[in-house]
Design a protein around this nucleic acid. Sequence first.
DNA 1: TTGAAAGCGCTAACAT
DNA 2: ATGTTAGCGCTTTCAA
Lengths: 348, 348
Amino acid sequence: MTRPPAKPGPKAPPRRALTLRDVSELSGVSEMTVSRVLRNRGDVSEATREKVLTAARDIGYVPNKIAGALASQRVNLVGVIIPSLSNMVFPEVLAGISEVLEDTGLQPVVGVTHYSPEREESVLYEMLSWRPSGIVIAGLEHSGGARAMLDAAGVPVVEIMDTDGPPVDSAVGISHRKAGRQTAAAILAAGYRRIGFLGTKMPDDHRARKRMEGFEAALAEAGLVLEDREFYAGGSALLKGREMTEAILRRSPHLDFLYYSNDMIGAGGLLWCLENGIDVPGKLGLAGFNGVELLQGLPRRLATVDSCRREIGRLAAEIIAGKRPGGVIGGEVLELSPVLHPGDTIRT
Amino acid sequence: MTRPPAKPGPKAPPRRALTLRDVSELSGVSEMTVSRVLRNRGDVSEATREKVLTAARDIGYVPNKIAGALASQRVNLVGVIIPSLSNMVFPEVLAGISEVLEDTGLQPVVGVTHYSPEREESVLYEMLSWRPSGIVIAGLEHSGGARAMLDAAGVPVVEIMDTDGPPVDSAVGISHRKAGRQTAAAILAAGYRRIGFLGTKMPDDHRARKRMEGFEAALAEAGLVLEDREFYAGGSALLKGREMTEAILRRSPHLDFLYYSNDMIGAGGLLWCLENGIDVPGKLGLAGFNGVELLQGLPRRLATVDSCRREIGRLAAEIIAGKRPGGVIGGEVLELSPVLHPGDTIRT
DNA sequence: TTGAAAGCGCTAACAT
DNA sequence: ATGTTAGCGCTTTCAA
């Protein structure tokens, strides 16, 4: 089924796109005045205003922002560069961004890097070539080329998710090292001592890495080390959580706590434990990370640290939109303080 | 913490953005040739090529696509208009789109409508003003204004998710009426007769509505009607699923099947039933919709119909990118045939 | 309050 | 293989 070949109907759409000139001719007003009306700029008499608006509507004129942007050197686009769309984390950040931008006339352009520095660099190049009003980019670790571009961008740059390191310009996020430490502290305070870690095998997921580092550092200060680890890549996280939990407990049945690098695998582990009659949190404690909404509906609430995703998105968008209180312009570092929810899987 | 006031470092970024002219002067080659090199167009000697590339890299030149697009009348942006980012459904479609566009030099620009026709219209207007190479938009129902804009857009338009109705141009999706019928048929074939429905209270979610209509039509043909219904809005879907399930079963304990309008509330219902010792699927059957990955990790696999989200995104992107086999240009309607997975919650 | 002229930074089309 | 010219459709700036 293909499009009918040039069927010139009664209302055949114009081949050439409409321009200001078309509206100008139809309304008998100069292009300049039409432009003013359409942008609500400058003084225009009510009569002219009406004429122009009517003419524009009649022919279905849609302004050309390409030309407008070139002439005015202003672009209402914001580049958003994230590693992935395949788990809820980044869409939630994006939702926060989108929510705030909606009221500002700015539009997000999304680029996905799949955790590859090379892709990040090329996506960034692509975005900067649109001269966006701002860039929101996940993480603080970038290739040399990407860093140079961000430095020279000349627009607000907000690095999100992570504050463990120096930003190019502004940063909004949490300290993943602290989050790891915080979790370890709660686990140790509850008396658990034989601890295993389950996470993703992603060398370029710096935030997961930092959480684990913070976690291990806190253990080390208590004279402990991780007794076992299990890694995975890809697949249904909930299912992987089950499988990994079974595997690590089979190998190291003496463990009394499992720290998961995210809530989805943690939830899988929790379900597996419940089904297998393991005493949680009495004999085995569990904790995840992110504070995903899903946890609310599980039979027990998994212990977790909220990663403040939506709030991070909102704040990043506010910085780009110049809506920060006090009129602060850039160079802000907003480190949010995530709350640890002990839920029902750490004994008290 | 604010940006230091105009600290002119050793490598102060240029106030004026770099242009082709800068590269031209540095390399001693005309702007036109520089442009050719940077776009890999036309014949350029290897020597000049090197010179230009080096010069461009040295000063960190990033082309201005605004100007390029205006001059060439070509824009590598694709507008993607979706109702929401708050459940995995649309991010997954977006992931499919992004995946295919990555190899084509096209970039998605995302707009979110929150299921509001007015917002859809304004988001569409905004997008068309960038003269994108294509529009991907969820659903077949649009306001008069939106429809007129799509008709006149002059670029490929792909309406996704739904094929129950005439498209403006191309469409990729599934028939939600058929999906509803298909589910009803499986339920009836298994011998269930006293059926309840649980879903969202969203007047503008036409696809959920169509599934329910198809479902009820099939029941009617068997001389049955829905015996009870329960609706919700907002909140954690898994948690809502639990609450609604408890509520509907308290009110109508004689029900022998619950049809959920999506998998997340269905999963919540399933967990609730298991915890409350209800014999699933013996005494009570359950079914959801979407085929979300999450179901793989639950204690039982919920019956569901796969909504082919990622594939829909991929195909839509292929149409926009002109990559459809046979070189078909537009006006395609791709109705995918979703599979019903009976899982463990419909008795056999 | 309205209009005219001069570009914005690039590329199509046509030289050479 | 390289250069020249003339816009793309707007907005800025200045004039009336």
